[in-house]
Write a protein that binds this DNA or RNA. Structure first.
Lengths: 357, 357
DNA sequence: TGTTATTTTTGGAACGGTCTAAATTACCAT
DNA sequence: ATGGTAATTTAGACCGTTCCAAAAATAACA
């Protein structure tokens, strides 16, 4: 309670370093050193000051500190869509990771709007972020990355990229992941496999499409552009896309999907068309979202880890902030694994998931 | 390009107000006024300075401004779980809303940990947030709210509360929402209705449970605690809970669920038990998540709007910041509506949703 | 033209910390 | 005591803005 009355007693607001110093009978420099955990101050002095800080309920003013030290220990995270659970988990993991080293994350959701993204970035620069992790919105220009570089602000692209290797990037191996998925279907005997979802402006969609094609070609199957059914990343759109796929000639017997959301739409679309997914038609997704195991049929999918990507991206950014002059890095994390469940119609292997009831 | 070389030419970092002032031949006070859009400066001076700012690529230093003005125009948002799509949408909507008035949102995800929540709040105070919107983590003490009040930092609880009316709160009407859901089932002829999910520490779960009970009692049905099957908010747990409900005596013929996620688990659990949800057993959810319409059977649910709650909470907080001395407010938004779909087995009414295939 | 309003502009002191270099104190062996 | 070294502490400039009061410039008017 004492801190309340003390605080209320001050004419204009906040308690400052100077107040602590006066009450403790030392200079503000000493208090500053204590706050920063310097080994220079004598331990008994430190304890006395610590006690005073706690007793008075002093709140450190990071803004003031940053002004002088020119360090804000703040990074910016801009994602294209938090309402997508992958990015929500990415965000949570990234924040939790950097927080342990005392970094603060400024968060922004561009909602796939480059204009909003630009505003967010401008705002972040005004706030003095020391670096940015960017999951670029649809239609982001490479000029944005170049502008940040020119302005001396480290930026790590993640999960998507709008530049080539000349800029830092951390993502998972979409090509390999989709190769694994496609190859699995080929091994199961499928010869006509569709690709559902994706868009040319999305680098990870392009990579996944390439993985699909690589696997086909490696097994001597033709890549037929007519079997690529692009659609928005929404269940309704995916359900329509799979219906279109069923009407194609030759008719595919299986499909790899851009991601789990698209796969869910595909499962639904198949049922609506009177087919039994996992029996009459095989489907594989990508992401391994939390609810994949709970669908019926449960969804076979490529498991990737938002946490792993977030941690790798954050590490790279912090490294880049510490040493801005290193060459750019392009980090590709392997997919965790192909999770074989019911939707691809594969015989389950030992140790793999089996539905319980 | 000129800004690049100019910037690079400076010995130590950033371009400041003074630099702009010197190059424009005015004082830094004038430039400051221009930046803040003051009507005091002559329009031609303003334009000249604006041009110079744009040409040199000057970046405003909010930290320095805040230090002097004692205003950060920053608020904190602490949610208990961003990976829950309701909160992801809540976050996105809130940020977009306050951003229009020039406010910056500092975001934190407590992941239901009061310790982490405390750390986040401490950090936010150091950053100088002018107010906080808090969706309290499981186990949050009312003392936290009291401490913020004592420290003079406005705080609006949202979606959940750990205090009574003496503190600001914005939420939706969970009681009424669940009354609507339960009443609908009663009107359909159900006499033995279970409540699935929820926990006593979660105020919104408690409210929903109360709504369930109110509806029963109003229709002369007994409230039987043995028909309340509490469980974690996860599909697996909900599937187990519904299995337990089916084993109860008297055996329920319908269930209202704490939220959509629990309802999904219930649907799954029913299927796994060999029952046809929506035909043999009625289920209603709560939240109206985006994917509810796409389940089979599609889920009947109480529709609430994360955006509406976010906007109301933000408005209240900004009002409280502008005038800290107003009495506390307790804002309860009505549920949007009961969305009748297939899972409750109701005959569809005109204008309501019907599955397409 | 001088005087008084009015509009613009400005110097310099804050804001609350950190940083540097220097001052003070403590400790130890003569 | 005394000098020397190491351990602590400190004064005061400084970070980039905003704020205030006052100065300068301009307009209005007799």
């Amino acid at each position: 309670m004492s801190e309340v009355s003390d605080l209320a007693g001050r004419p204009s607001g906040r308690l400052t370093l100077k107040d602590i110093a006066d009450r403790a009978g030392v200079s503000k420099s000493t208090v500053s050193l204590v706050l920063r955990g310097s080994p220079l101050v004598r331990s008994e002095t430190r304890e006395r000051i610590r006690a005073m800080i706690a007793e008075l309920g002093y709140v450190y003013n990071r803004g003031a500190a940053s002004l002088r030290s020119q360090r804000t220990h703040t990074i910016g995270l801009v994602v294209n869509d938090v309402t997508n659970s992958f990015y929500a988990e990415f965000t949570a993991a990234l924040d939790a990771f950097v927080e342990r080293d005392g970094w603060v994350t400024l968060f922004g959701n561009s909602a796939e709007s480059p204009e909003r993204q630009q505003k967010i970035i401008d705002r972040m620069r005004e706030q003095g972020v020391e670096g940015i992790i960017l999951c670029p919105a649809r239609g982001t220009s490479p000029d944005l990355i170049e502008a940040l570089r020119a302005g001396g602000l480290p930026c790590v692209q993640s999960t998507r990229h709008v530049t080539g290797r000349e800029a830092d990037y951390v993502g998972q191996d979409n090509v390999l992941g989709m190769e694994m998925a496609t190859e699995h279907l080929i091994r199961l005997g499928h010869r006509c496999i569709a690709f559902i979802g994706g868009a040319p402006w999305n680098s990870s969609a392009v990579d996944r499409e390439n993985g699909y094609r690589n696997a086909l070609l490696r097994h001597g199957l033709a890549f037929d552009p007519a079997l690529v059914f692009r659609c928005e990343t929404r269940q309704e759109a995916a359900a329509r896309a799979i219906a279109a796929a069923l009407a194609a000639s030759p008719q595919p017997t299986a499909a790899v999907c851009m991601n789990d959301l698209v796969a869910f739409g595909a499962l639904r679309g198949l049922s609506d068309q009177g087919l039994r997914p996992g029996v009459d038609f095989a489907v594989v997704g990508f992401d391994n979202r939390r609810d994949t195991a709970f669908w019926r049929p449960s969804l076979s999918t490529v498991s990737i880890s938002p946490e792993a990507v977030a941690v790798a991206a954050a590490s790279l950014l912090l490294r880049r902030i510490a040493d801005p002059n290193g060459g750019s890095e392009w980090v590709i994390l392997p997919p965790e694994r192909l999770v074989v469940r019911e939707s691809c119609g594969a015989p389950l292997m030992a140790g793999e998931e089996r539905r319980t009831a």
